Simulated assay, not measured.
Amino acid sequence: MTHAGDDPVVTVAELEDLAARARALGEAIEAAGARLRAVHDSPGRAGWRLDEAAGATRGVIRELTAAAGDLAPEPGHSICPITWGVCPEHGKTLTGTAGRSWCRHPGCGRSWHYDRTSLACTEPVAFQIRTESGDGVLMCRGHAVSTLEQQADAVLTPVSADHADEP
């Protein structure tokens, strides 16, 4: 297997391999917790720490799987080209602190364990926006919502995922 120091290119296969290794580690941690509980009625801090470690591996697996998907989106699905993130439903309603982000829209409840506003959008293209000048841009639902709020003359046209790559 290629390691980060050997090759500067990160591949989907490498991320999938890391996720599989994290899965195996998580299973080993859960097995250790089960053995600890089989011996001790009250495993105390050690049991709690093992539960936390197993939970952390599930988070690692989720993030590695998402990163692999970011490198290779599903065929036929275009990704929004906008270079900043939004709430996928409510648009430019994000706020954050300490490297986390969340939507301020009442009742939304979406949150991210990273600064979503400073990263390029990874949502699928859903609309083409045209302005009075005739410029057209493909974008996701959240960015389309933001554009409509900022540009009264914008015209929104839905696009299907399999036609998002067409001009």
Rank of each mutant, 00 (worst) to 15 (best):
T2C: 15
D7C: 09
P8Q: 05
A13V: 15
E14S: 11
L15F: 05
E16W: 00
L18P: 13
A20S: 08
A22M: 08
A28I: 03
I29V: 03
R37Q: 13
A38C: 01
G44Q: 06
G44R: 01
R45P: 14
D51R: 00
E52C: 05
A53E: 05
A53S: 04
A56L: 10
R58P: 01
G59M: 00
V60G: 02
V60N: 03
I61E: 04
A67G: 10
A67Q: 06
D70W: 09
G76W: 03
S78D: 15
I79S: 12
C80P: 04
C80W: 11
C80S: 02
I82G: 04
W84S: 11
G85K: 10
V86R: 00
C87T: 01
P88T: 08
E89H: 14
G91S: 00
T95V: 06
T95G: 06
S101Q: 11
C103E: 13
R104I: 06
C108N: 00
G109K: 01
H113G: 14
Y114E: 13
D115R: 07
D115F: 02
L119E: 06
E123H: 10
P124L: 02
V125K: 14
L138I: 14
L138Y: 15
C140P: 05
H143N: 02
A144K: 05
S146P: 09
S146T: 05
T147A: 06
E149C: 13
Q150T: 07
Q151V: 09
A152V: 08
P158I: 03
